[in-house]
């Protein structure tokens, strides 16, 4: 009983705290190499669980619409290996967000009600989405109040604002569910998932900086 609990206390205390707001984060406080060095304090089974969750929720591994069925199958496999309701909720919540966003994108391609039947996703939201395919927020506004705004941003092609909305949504959700978890495995998972969000945002800035750099180089060459 004492062993894992104290291990988590040591790991959590060794990690620098995240900023209060995602937008306050100027630079990543830890590189992935440094984070992995800290995470080496975890036991093997915890490392495996963390890797599986990260792999399933990683932004880069977000499947295309054609792969939705495979993604849902993979998610089911992951959830069957988790014996922790908290972690199940973390995974399901993110997969539902992805499903809703996929539905918004898919609807733009195939707006007719007939084609809604082809849509695939994860969770109980899928049937509701199909039933309310032509409603702006899929009548999910009570449970997911951000859907309407996300749809409007998507249709207005405000990709950066949409990205910020989704990142902030995850950031705040993790902060909320992380209350009460301070020195346990759940706190480690929340820390790493929030680190992933920071990393995602910081990378965006890097890409922007690179584009700016290329533009300046081109201008210099023209001159």
């Amino acid at each position: 009983m004492i062993g894992p609990q104290t291990d988590y206390a040591m790991l959590i205390a060794s990690l620098p705290p995240h900023a209060l707001s995602l937008w306050d984060v100027q630079n990543k406080s830890l590189s992935r190499v440094q984070l992995d060095r800290h995470l080496s304090l975890l036991r093997d089974e915890d490392k495996q669980t963390l890797n599986n969750i990260e792999a399933a929720l990683h932004w880069a591994k977000m499947p295309s619409i054609k792969q939705a069925q495979l993604a849902a199958k993979n998610a089911d496999q992951l959830l069957s290996t988790l014996d922790n309701y908290f972690l199940e909720d973390v995974v399901i919540w993110r997969l539902q967000i992805r499903t809703i966003m996929a539905a918004i994108r898919y609807r733009k391609l195939k707006p007719s009600l007939k084609e809604a039947a082809e849509f695939q996703g994860y969770g109980e939201v899928v049937s509701r989405i199909k039933k309310n395919w032509q409603t702006e927020d899929f009548t999910l506004n009570n449970r997911f109040p951000w859907v309407k705004e996300a749809n409007q941003l998507f249709n207005a092609n405000e990709t950066v604002a949409l990205e910020k909305l989704l990142l902030n949504l995850s950031w705040q959700h993790y902060e909320k569910i992380g209350q009460g978890h301070y020195f346990d495995f759940e706190a480690v998972i929340i820390y790493v998932l929030r680190w992933d969000i920071i990393n995602r945002w910081a990378k965006n800035d890097e890409q922007k900086a690179m584009q700016q750099f290329e533009l300046l180089v081109e201008q210099a060459l023209i001159i």
Partner: peptide, 8 residues
């Protein structure tokens, strides 16, 4: 618990 947090 507190000791390992201190080490961390």
């Amino acid at each position: 618990v507190a000791g390992q947090a201190a080490i961390g």
